[in-house]
Amino acid sequence: MTVTQLAEKLELKKLSNGEDKEVNSCYISDLLSRVLGGCSPNDVWITVQTSLNMVAVAVMADISFVILPEDVTAPVNVILKANDEGLPVYSSSKSAYELALLIGDLL
């Protein structure tokens, strides 16, 4: 399943544009080094981290896209950076747990 397909099924709100990569699995953490060490390529990453470093970590680790749960918003400069890097970032009113359950069913 691709980023766009999954985002549509999860009714996510798009914050930045990027490559429509395949999504293989899901990783949830707000500790950046934990993500770098634990996630897999083509994961969707659910996090409340909204700094520029979130974008850098996602790009370094080949994350397919990022979901900010519970209507968390990201600063404009972070969204612009995500656009520049081709990293899709979405937001959702659902919690990380609710999203993970749905993603588990869909992937």
Partner: peptide
Amino acid sequence: ELGFGAGMGLPNIKK
């Protein structure tokens, strides 16, 4: 607060 300081940096590099 920026998300760093998990104590995983050097172990991640080694890995």
